[in-house]
Amino acid sequence: MTDTAAAEVAALSEDHRTSTGISNEKLAMWLFLGSECLLFGGLISTYMFNKGRIGPDDIGPDDVFDIPFTSVSSFVLLMSSLTMVFAVSSIAKGDLRRNRIWLAATAALGATFVAGQVYEFTAFYSEGLGFTTNLFGSSFYALTGFHGAHVTIGIIMLMSLFVMSVRGNLSRERAETVEIIGLYWHFVDVVWIVIFTIVYLFPQ
């Protein structure tokens, strides 16, 4: 690697225009994600506080959860984190074609997860668990619904990146934009691991 190339890479990974060396955009995303921790913290606490507050004959977690199905959709979402990593590394190398492939793959995996959630919600609803049925229903749909909305926004951002790339507006110099959206995507995945563990796997 020549000196110029090395300097170029250094310039891409570190922002010398700021006091911390982290670009404003990336710092803002980290701060936003810090704030999001408290948002999901509040929703998860609400769920844990409320899930047992149902009558003995009420429809509850044990009546509706399909652990194998949700495990598969969780696996799909986790795989999307892997493809997101490939998307970030490919654009950092300047490989725009692969970057597009991985962006599309990440969005597709995310969409599969959301589709699974829609299916799950429909199935639960037909089994008699609505948003207004009881405290478990309200808390469950609020928590997983907020998460699903976050995944959906992530998919929209990934698709926007994809369209930008097709139009020739996503070059190597904008690698950090992909990285920042990647941060959001990984965060949403990590939150799902917590939700999946607490909501589905903990003994009810």
């Binding site: 609400t46 409320n50 507050r53 149902i54 009558g55 948003f131 207004t132 009881n134 405290l135 229903g137 309200s138 808390s139 609020a142």
Partner: peptide, 12 residues
Amino acid sequence: WDSNFFNVAAGA
């Protein structure tokens, strides 16, 4: 939308 978070009658 009639959820139950603070609905004491539903056990909240």
